[in-house]
Structures are given as structure tokens and as C-alpha cells.
């Protein structure tokens, strides 16, 4: 029985296989509409994350399965002090697969040690969120047709943004990839991430504090939110925040085939005037999340169509 806790639990071959299945689901959804008939997914969300939960539920319903669960700890027995191990020992007897979100790092791993069914980590604090990374990877391959040889710009909060760290970790496994790290000094990529996944693997990279200066080189621009509370003072925030907002003017400097990604929700870092630009693919990215989760659920349940 397999669980998915960390993206590195999957080999690149398995990721390719998931993406192939997701592509096929998008091409012929009716073929998969009963793939998980009579199977049940539990969404155990110990902290709210509506977007992720709905994406999982939509995925299971699209496969003809059913869903049950809770969307916050207050409506679960965790509020009475029950341990993750006990909750999962009980629930895993009711369902076939569990997607779990928890504010504490490592909670889904603990769950996988006690579960009778596969556990999917749907985010554990600032630690891992492998289905977001799978969504990002499907987006990249579907939109660009490949992983090899891409120049990926990561912009905004590279210090605390776990989606950025996981994407770098996952993309560093493909040949010919280059990274362009665009952030204010205060929010630079942590040195351990840079060392482990970029420098030690001899992957070319450059750092810039200006989005305009490097946007023309990119195949992919991955935007993240620059949060006010990350700054020491408001002046500094006000000085920097506009440099990391993507506007129509900045997009004029980008290639015609560059894509703009964002894990969402956005606040103001991408101007809404860009939403009609075919290069803006963040809403398509959110939609891909449903298909890759469908492929993942089928894989963990050993269902092939």
C-alpha cells in the first residue's frame, strides 16, 4: 500500500506516468467516469483549505466515487483531544483513500503509519504539499510539452514559499533546467534549498531583485505572494511591493510563449488586467489540479482504465 507524503516518494517515471494519465483524463473524461465507483475518499482537513479540499472532492466525484470528511479541526474529534493516529485508525476502516491536511508538520506521515488505506498529504503546515507540486508539474508539461531545458523564473517570496521550494526540488531532477530567482533581499531563497537542489547539482541559476531585468529570458514565470507581515517595516514593504507585481507593461518584455503560473490565491501580485492574456495560465493551473488528483487517486487505489 502506497501513500504520498513527499513529492520525492514518486520517481520521475511515476510522475511522468501520472501526468500521462491526467492528460488522457482531460482528453477523454467519460472513459474514467466510473473508474472509482463504490470507492470512498475521506477528506480529513484539520485546518481549512477550501480550494484544495474541493479539488480532491471534485477529483473523486469525477471518477464516480464518493466523499466524506470534515473541513476543520473544530468539527472533528481532534477538538476533543483525539490523536491523529486514533482518528486515522478509525476512519481508514470506513474509506478507501484519505486526503489529509493538518497544520502540524509530519501529521500525514504519522497517519500513514496507522492507516489501513493510502494517505495523501494535502499539506502539512509549511512542510510538504505534494499535490500542489504535481499540479505545477502537470501544468508545465501540458503547457510547454516538456520539462527538459526550461528556464524557470520564481518571483516574490522565495524564503517562506513552500510551493517554490518543492517545485525547485522536483524540477531539479530534469536535465537542462535553469532557475532565475527573483525576490527582494529579505525574501531570498534559503541557502539550504539553494545548496541542496541547485548548487550541489550544478544547475545554472541567477538571482535578481528586478523582474523587468530578467522576464525576457523566461519560459515560465512562477509568481508568489509578497506578504506584508514578512517585512520588518512598512516603508520597506511599500518600497518593494510594486517591483513584484506583474503588470501588462512588464508582460510586454516577456516572450510570446512564456507562461505565468501562481499557486493561488493571489492578492495583488498579478494585475487582473492580465487574466485575458493567453500566457496567464493560473486558472488553468488550478483546473489541472483536479485531473492530476484523479490520476493520483487511481494510482494509489491500483485502478487502471
Amino acid at each position: 500500500m502506497r501513500s504520498l507524503i513527499d513529492i520525492l516518494d514518486l520517481s520521475t517515471e511515476e510522475i511522468d506516468e501520472l501526468i500521462d494519465v491526467a492528460d488522457d483524463i482531460m482528453a477523454q473524461p467519460e472513459k474514467y467516469q466510473d473508474a472509482c465507483r463504490h470507492k470512498i475518499l475521506a477528506t480529513l482537513f484539520f485546518e481549512p483549505s477550501t480550494r484544495t479540499r474541493l479539488s480532491f472532492e471534485s477529483a473523486m466525484l469525477s471518477l464516480g466515487g464518493s466523499v466524506l470528511g470534515f473541513s476543520e479541526a473544530a468539527s472533528s474529534s481532534a477538538s476533543k483531544g483525539e490523536s491523529v493516529a486514533d482518528t486515522v485508525s478509525v476512519v481508514s476502516g470506513y474509506v478507501d483513500v484519505i486526503a489529509m491536511r493538518h497544520p502540524k508538520e509530519g501529521a500525514p506521515l504519522v497517519a500513514s503509519m496507522h492507516s489501513l488505506v493510502p494517505i495523501i498529504n494535502a499539506g502539512d503546515g509549511g512542510h510538504y504539499h505534494p499535490t500542489q507540486t504535481l499540479t505545477d508539474l502537470l501544468t508545465i508539461r501540458h503547457e510547454k510539452g516538456r520539462f527538459d531545458g526550461l528556464t524557470i523564473g520564481l518571483c516574490g517570496d522565495l524564503k517562506f514559499g513552500r510551493t517554490v521550494h518543492s517545485l525547485i526540488e522536483a524540477m531539479s531532477r530534469y536535465p537542462g533546467v535553469k532557475f532565475v530567482l527573483i525576490s527582494p533581499e529579505e525574501l531570498k531563497l534559503p541557502s539550504f534549498v539553494k545548496k541542496e537542489f541547485i548548487k550541489d547539482k550544478n544547475i545554472p541559476y541567477e538571482q535578481s531583485t528586478s523582474l523587468e531585468a530578467v522576464i525576457g529570458k523566461l519560459d515560465i514565470l512562477y509568481m508568489t505572494r509578497v506578504q506584508k507581515e514578512r517585512f520588518f517595516n512598512e516603508e520597506e514593504y511599500l518600497r518593494l511591493k510594486d517591483s513584484y507585481i506583474l503588470t501588462k507593461e512588464k508582460m510586454k518584455l516577456a516572450r510570446e510563449d512564456m507562461i505565468v503560473m501562481h499557486p493561488l490565491p493571489r492578492v495583488n501580485e498579478i494585475s487582473t488586467s492580465l487574466d485575458d492574456d493567453p500566457r496567464a495560465c493560473y486558472f488553468r493551473q488550478a483546473h489541472y489540479g483536479r485531473y492530476i488528483r484523479m490520476a493520483l487517486i487511481m494510482k494509489l487505489l491500483n485502478i487502471r482504465v
Binding site: V84, A85, H102, K104, E105, G106, L109, V110
Partner: peptide
């Protein structure tokens, strides 16, 4: 933020991740 802070009965497990540097990391 580790799960061991709220689930008191969980064993604290560390895995050797770098022998040369004698580096251990929390399992969770």
C-alpha cells in the same frame, strides 16, 4: 510546528541524513 509537540505519546525519531556531518533530521 512539528506534530510531536501536540501528540505527546509519539516517539521522537531522528534519521541519520549525513554521516560525514553527523547530521540527523526529525522523521516527521
Amino acid at each position: 510546528r512539528c506534530i510531536t509537540t501536540t501528540e505527546q505519546e509519539l516517539p521522537h525519531v531522528f534519521i541519520l541524513t549525513n554521516r560525514e556531518k553527523r547530521e540527523y533530521r526529525c522523521l516527521y
